[in-house]
Amino acid sequence: MSQSSLKNRSPFQPLDWAEVVEMWESRFGIPLSIFEGASFYRKGRNVWIFSLPEIPDLRCESVGLRFMSVRGRVWKPTTYALQLFGHVATKNAVDLGPDQAEKFIAGERQSLEAELEDGYVVVSYQGEVLGCGLYSRGELVSQLPKERRIMKEGIENCLSSGGS
């Protein structure tokens, strides 16, 4: 198979770098420079971030890390991308206390007073990013993937006692 034929058939379509990173800058104040050298691809509703300017000439199941998903004009950052880049967010980011973090980790919703715009936010605990939350009218809803949630009975060895 020639190089071009495999590339043309690739379901991963390259995206404009500036267009993607400006969305993150505008929502979270994340500096564009942190994404320097990376490239972005879209497949279906998912946008992927990849370390090299071009994807290799192979039949790929995935390319780098799922960065965000897009539905119409609404986009949602993945928890994994926020865990990697969210620490430099300067807005729409919130650091929770131990009880709040416990609820978030268990996948629950909770009321929260914070200086956040409605929409997706970076949620952290003791300065380390836990993942993505959805903030709307004073309520924070955990967006942690189900397989990553830790239910309350398992949580005792999970939260740092130094946090309270």
Binding site: A38, I49, F50, S51, L52, I55, P56, L58, R59, C60, E61, S62, V63, G64, L65, R66, T78, Y80, Q83, L84, R148
Partner: peptide
Amino acid sequence: CERAGAINVVVT
């Protein structure tokens, strides 16, 4: 790979 935050991995 996602939990590790690996952006240089392609899965085949």
